[in-house]
């Protein structure tokens, strides 16, 4: 019985990993999986309901929705990796250093900036930043990454704060090991697991945020298929062609769910506090 439960508990995490694996495979083998060129317009097949030829139907330019959803996976993976990557590159080092050295800069500058940034609702901040930078995928990623960085600072810093007083760190310090070595050699490896959990959950948020911005018309440039911009395009067809909104949204949902499941599973697995 115990093992069954344990399997069930980790099972959800495994399911998440499976979904993500599937997403990656779809993105890599998109040309083989897609039945049509995602950008090919067929003016004789406009707004067809799902059928044998077009599994998910066609949009208002006669493009194959299935193929566009398949290719859209590439944008989503990129969004997940790039946005979280940017957030980590900004957030983790800041968290490490401020947590280690503490003092004025930590208390009165960095943490207050983080507080201030977190006072802005995430999507509103991303919206404002990408409006500032102009629409486009790169800018949307930067906007999401910047909006997301504070949470990495907090997570990393929190870990460092509890690790810096550990015996082995104190010991290393007392024998004169350089700070850099302590930070990257001793503290960072031990602080990794919450960072990993955070990045998995962050990728879910990143994909959602990219889709939201694209949905608002601030994301990828046309005609690149992205799930969010497909929804933006299909929105006006809600009552005429509901299937055009159904599949791209379903794709976002499943993939975000995958990252959330994995993140949750990792949390159960890596974080002893959550393991009840």
């Amino acid at each position: 019985m115990k093992t069954v439960k344990r399997f069930l508990r980790t099972g959800l995490g495994l399911l998440g990993a499976l979904i993500i694996l599937l997403l990656i495979l779809v993105a890599i083998f998109a040309p083989a999986i897609a039945t049509h060129d995602p950008n090919a317009q067929d003016y004789n097949a406009i707004l067809q309901e799902p059928n044998a030829q077009h599994l998910f139907g066609t949009d208002d330019l006669g493009r194959d929705i299935f193929s566009r959803v398949v290719y859209g996976s590439r944008v989503s993976i990129e969004a997940a990796i790039v946005s979280v990557g940017i957030a980590m590159i900004i957030g983790v080092p800041i968290g490490l250093f401020t947590g280690y050295y503490r003092g004025f800069w930590d208390e009165w500058v960095v943490m207050r900036i983080i507080d201030a940034m977190q006072a802005f609702p995430f999507l509103i901040l991303a919206l404002a930043i990408s409006a500032v930078l102009g629409s486009g995928f790169g800018n949307a990623m930067l906007a999401i990454g910047i909006g997301f960085a504070p949470s990495f600072v907090r997570i990393t810093r929190g870990q460092v704060l509890s690790l810096r007083n550990m015996e082995y760190v104190q010991a290393a310090k007392s024998v004169g090991v350089k700070d850099m070595r302590i930070i990257f050699g001793h503290i960072l490896p031990n602080a990794l697991s919450p960072i990993i959990i955070q990045s998995t959950l962050g990728m879910a948020t990143g994909i959602l945020a990219e889709a939201s911005l694209s949905y608002l018309g601030l994301g990828v440039q046309p005609p690149t298929p992205s799930w969010g911009s497909m929804l933006n395009q299909a929105q006006s067809l809600l009552s005429v062609a509901p299937y055009a909104t159904f599949y791209p949204g379903l794709a976002i949902f499943v993939v975000v769910l995958g990252f959330n499941l994995l993140g949750d599973g990792l949390q159960q697995f890596l974080d002893p506090k959550a393991r009840k």
């Binding site: 069930l8 959800l12 929804l231 791209p248 949204g249 949902f253 769910l257 959330n260």
Partner: peptide, 28 residues
Amino acid sequence: YTSSFLALGGMSIPNFWLAMMVIIYFTV
């Protein structure tokens, strides 16, 4: 397990998509 799965599902639904789906079902 079912309810935590559903909860994660709820956290994963893009709200603009959910909005469109409820419009399709309840309005259209």
